[in-house]
Design a protein around this nucleic acid. Structure first.
Lengths: 205, 205
DNA sequence: GAGGTTAATTGAACACCGTTCAATAATCAA
DNA sequence: TTGATTATTGAACGGTGTTCAATTAACCTC
């Protein structure tokens, strides 16, 4: 029979992802390297390539976990919210808070781009879509919006929230904190949703 | 006297930036390297470091030129527009068009992050701010908005537009084209501005 | 226990990368 | 022709992602 594994595949992947996350938290995506990760988990470089296709694969899985964590934060934020708009705002605040508090991990999600010829794997796209679906769920309890419109509104709202966070992250010195970002997010959702309500009622400004 | 230069500093910088842009257009930021740039312009690697501080500096200057080009596109789009809202939409469409048509260069702007301990240079931050100022200028002809509010609205709107483009760029396969993105942008501006108009008038939905 | 089979793990090798800096090359003044 | 000056070079350093023959450790069989 064959040599015994020090850890099974799942354990190894998990250890590697944790090590990678710590490197990213410590110094951003640029501080991540396969050799550092492998050294951290007590394996040689080559072993990394037995559980990951390549380093892009590893990063993608780190980012997948980050998206999961954000999703969890958003779901927790839903508890006790009253109206669709308030629920969406609660999720947006949770998103902002996560992005500000876990800046390294959050930045890695959108900083990492696959080579031009490589397609984004389906499971990753689904995680991104999942966040939009959370918003859509809230919108679906509003009367007068077609499914297409709901999908459009969710995309627009969430892209807006994300864009605001991106700007805040760029301007590290002055604006990457919840207190500064939340008012913008609040204004976006309040006013955009007001416009949508008018549209539903067929009124014009 | 001293040895004669093959090109003066300005020429060298320009040649290097053009070469770098072509590399980014061809295969994204990951395909850029100092050695490739220097080979392309007929210099050795070392010479690059006589006109750029390091590779981050070079990339930052490429991104600066991209921001300039986007600004130019936005200014051109302003010709003939009638109302503030229409003018903002015209600029947004120009932004979307540039991002879709010059995806490599546009992606490089937000994909590139300086190391954690390095501050974004002032001249770069100013170029970013300049785009927000273009939006603010349009808003300033609206009655009833304080300067603070104008600044907030401009940030929110433009972050929203940017966020929508980011999502489109992520989903390369289905959505990175003007026809798909413009309706979202249009809806964002229309509805958010409707909400702002209501706020000005002190009405509620 | 010895030998064989199997598969996990290694680490050296390859071709690249950013960055530095002593050495070289090219120019003009004396 | 020599010296001074400065633009330019390219080898060197320590890092990177990735591959893969060689090694190692486990078990089964004899």
């Amino acid at each position: 029979m064959a040599r015994q594994r020090k850890h099974n595949t799942e354990e190894m992947i998990n250890m590697a992802l944790v090590a990678a996350e710590n490197l990213i938290i410590g110094g951003g995506l640029s501080q991540l390297s396969g050799r550092k990760v492998s050294a951290e988990i007590g394996y040689s470089v080559g072993s990394l390539y037995t559980v990951f296709e390549n380093l892009d694969d590893l990063i993608l899985q780190v980012n997948g976990r980050t998206l999961d964590a954000m999703r969890d934060a958003m779901l927790s934020a839903l508890e006790g919210c009253e109206t669709p708009e308030k629920c969406i705002k609660a999720m947006a605040y949770a998103y902002v808070e996560y992005a500000c508090l876990n800046n390294g991990l959050w930045t890695a999600v959108y900083e990492h781009n696959l080579p031009k010829d490589t397609a984004l794997p389906g499971w990753f796209a689904e995680k991104v879509d999942g966040m939009f679906l959370l918003v859509e769920m809230q919108l679906s309890s509003l009367q007068g919006l077609s499914q297409n419109k709901i999908s459009e509104v969710a995309k627009t709202l969430w892209c807006g929230v994300h864009g605001i966070c991106v700007l805040a992250a760029t301007r590290k010195y002055e604006a990457a904190n919840v207190a500064h970002v939340n008012p913008l997010v609040d204004g976006l959702i309040t006013n955009y949703m007001a416009g949508i309500q008018l549209e539903i009622r067929g009124e014009k400004v």
